[in-house]
Design a protein around this nucleic acid. Structure first.
Length: 605
RNA sequence: GCUGUUAUAGCACAGAUGGUAGUGCACUACAUUGGUAGUGUAGAGGUCACGAGUUCGAUUCUCGUUAACAGCUCCA
């Protein structure tokens, strides 16, 4: 689908969506200005799936008003305004935008000597670097999707503006297709599907960000946890169990008290009480305390501590989201204490283990790597030691390059004590979250006075790698729900087989079948109520149970089972023993339905 | 924390411009003993999120609280 840019070039829509969406955002701004001349314009960029424009409106746009704005946009498209580019020196640019305070702020930040570019369509002019389409008529299909508050320049201390989100396409059919995909994606939303499948629930009286894991959700987490704890042991980790809370003295040493106090649940009052206890937001200081119980030789290192650690973080009220952002969660946590020489090898092993785990749970193709660095400009957010930051970051970058990881760098995203390798996953709404992080810590070992004796008998400060293997169980479960649209691989499914007798006559045989399945540790659920068999099968399918076993008899009165697998439909009469072995094998080998699922459930990009 | 939307039975939804609530599916009992949401009969289930105000009377109007959702900010 060709589109035409303002400078005369012809380019494919797929390759140049930002210019297209950016023009659409100008049309939105023009429409809003036409309808509400007193509203000030802020900014209106293209984003991943469309565009938005921020307005200083002192009002919220209702659905009816959004419809009116859409109608006005339609007029602008129909008017076929050509876009004209022109530039002005700074003084004239300020004069032109004198009634737009946000534009003035932007212009004032530009250097004195540059020519400032504007785009004009009809009588509407906007400050903009471009590029843009040649004519508004190209934006044939568009839709305003939502309206939300957003801080000016993303800073919560600034005024909250009103943001209108929208998307646009050169053809109506493309818009319809996109909106359909959006609807399909919403059906996979873990927050909806996870509740429907009875994996988790929330309760008003329990509180925000405190999801209840229902039996089925808890089962999945138990399967993952048993697997991860065994796997870590195989990889040389030793398990620790440390308290969920500690005196604030501990957090003062770690720096959490000065860097993370607002994020903690604190019991007691520093002013009044002798002792103040806080729930732990991280496991680090506890495992460090374990390390310090002994004097260590360089021969002992590396020491790899692992812990299935329940953590509590006092997130602000608007930040909670399903299982992705919660106030209490359980992290497959761990810390490796090693010598500088061992650092690279240990880091590599951590990444190898993570990659193996991601592949096993089937999301290795869905993750991306982010190298999260500090920012010298964010004073107070990080431990103040620029030299150590630069040094550790260069070590980490070297390791990442040796590993040939395809990562992108992000400034101002580090932990307060060191740079991170973050493993990112996009949810169905396209929002990216970190599921796993690996960090190199240059600061805490010294603060905690941790040491080892090197080959020369000298006391040295070790390096610490903070790492997770699976991330936090709740968030990972959320990602898996969305990845598989609730249709988990057999080994992860909370119910692998549902047994449905076609008639009460076969209840005994159904019990035998269950016994045979259970003897191989297959998770099985049986419905003893034979009536409404059709409904029961449909229900089991909606629950995305991997195998539905319809138990009955053929005309010869031989007992038989008829297997319906979620992926392949009815497989007819099967030998029970063969079936049991097959399911047991899928569980034992962690067989993954990834390819089937992609065909069946993943919406097209 | 900020902006906005929302809250009626297990689920999906109706409803009255203020007079204490309905439908479908699910659920329970009985009959039908059957094959991909079978049929019939009967039945149970709701302080209409919570608290205050206005009113003769509030599930409905007003205010507050809590929770859920979308986004911003912050984060695993």
């Amino acid at each position: 689908m060709n589109i035409y840019l303002q400078d005369g070039t012809v380019i494919d829509f797929e390759d140049n969506k930002p210019a297209f969406w950016h023009t659409a955002s100008h049309i939105l701004a023009q429409a809003v200005k036409n309808l509400y001349p007193n509203i000030s314009l802020a900014i209106g960029p293209a984003i991943d799936n469309g565009f938005y424009y921020d307005f200083d409106a002192d009002k919220h746009f209702s659905d009816e008003e959004l419809s009116l704005i859409e109608a006005e946009m339609k007029k602008i498209v129909k008017a076929k305004y050509p876009l004209e580019k022109f530039s002005l020196p700074k003084s004239e640019a300020l004069e032109l935008m004198k009634n737009e305070p946000y534009k003035l702020e932007l212009i004032n930040e530009l250097p004195e000597d540059v020519e400032i570019t504007f785009y004009k369509q009809g009588d509407f002019v906007d400050l903009c670097a471009g590029p843009h389409l040649s004519n508004t008529k190209q934006v044939e299909a568009f839709k305003l999707l939502s309206c939300a508050g957003a801080y000016w320049r993303g800073n919560e201390k600034n005024k909250m503006l009103y943001r209108i989100y929208g998307t646009a396409f050169p053809k109506k059919a493309m818009l319809t297709e996109y909106l359909t995909e959006l609807e399909e994606a919403k059906k996979r939303d873990h927050n909806k599907l996870g509740r429907e499948l009875k994996l988790f629930a929330t309760d008003e009286a329990v509180g925000q960000g405190l999801p209840l894991l229902m039996p089925k959700g808890a089962k999945i987490i138990q399967i993952l946890q048993r697997w991860i704890e065994d796997l870590e042991e195989e990889h040389g980790y030793v398990l620790t169990k440390t308290p969920s809370m500690a005196k604030n003295d501990l957090y003062k040493i770690s720096g959490h008290w000065s860097h993370y106090k607002d994020g903690m649940f604190i019991m007691g009052d520093e002013e009044k009480d002798d002792e103040v206890i806080a729930l732990r937001p991280m496991t680090c200081p506890f495992q460090f305390a374990i390390y310090k119980q002994d004097q260590h030789s360089y021969r002992d290192l590396p020491i790899r501590y692992a812990e299935t650690a329940t953590l509590a973080r006092n997130e602000s009220s608007g930040e909670m989201h399903g299982l992705i952002r919660v106030r209490q969660f359980t992290l497959a946590d761990g810390h490796i204490i090693c010598t500088p020489e061992q650092l690279e090898e240990e880091f590599k092993n951590v990444v190898d283990l993570i990659q193996y785990i991601m592949k096993t749970i089937g999301i290795d193709k869905d993750i991306s790597y982010r190298f999260s660095k500090w920012s010298p400009n964010s004073k107070g957010k990080y431990i103040d030691n620029p030299e150590a930051w630069e040094n550790t970051q260069s070590i980490m970058k070297n390791i990442l390059d040796h590993l040939k990881l395809n990562y992108k760098e992000a400034d101002d995203e580090a932990a307060f004590y060191g740079p991170k390798l973050d493993i990112q996953f996009k949810n169905v709404h396209g929002k990216e979250d970190t599921i796993i992080t690996v960090q190199i810590d240059f600061a805490l070992a010294e603060r905690f006075n941790m040491s080892y004796i090197d080959a020369n008998g000298e006391k040295k400060i070790p390096y610490i790698i903070h790492r997770s293997s699976l991330g936090c169980y709740e968030r990972t479960l959320a990602m898996l729900i969305e990845k598989y649209a609730g249709a988990f691989p057999t080994w992860l499914a909370p119910v692998a087989v549902k047994v449905l007798p076609i008639s009460d006559k076969y209840a005994d045989y159904a019990a035998d079948v269950c016994k045979a399945l259970k003897s191989k540790k297959i998770l099985v659920e049986v419905d003893h109520r034979a009536e409404k068999i059709g409904y029961k099968i449909r229900e089991a399918r909606n629950e995305r149970i991997p195998y539905i076993l319809v138990v009955g008899a053929d005309e010869m009165e031989n007992k038989t089972v008829s297997v319906r697998s979620r992926q392949k439909g009815d497989e007819g009469v099967q030998d029970l023993t063969a079936f049991v072995n097959r399911v047991a094998n899928e569980i034992a080998t962690k067989f993954n339905y990834h390819d089937h699922i992609t065909n069946t459930f993943t919406a097209k990009k």
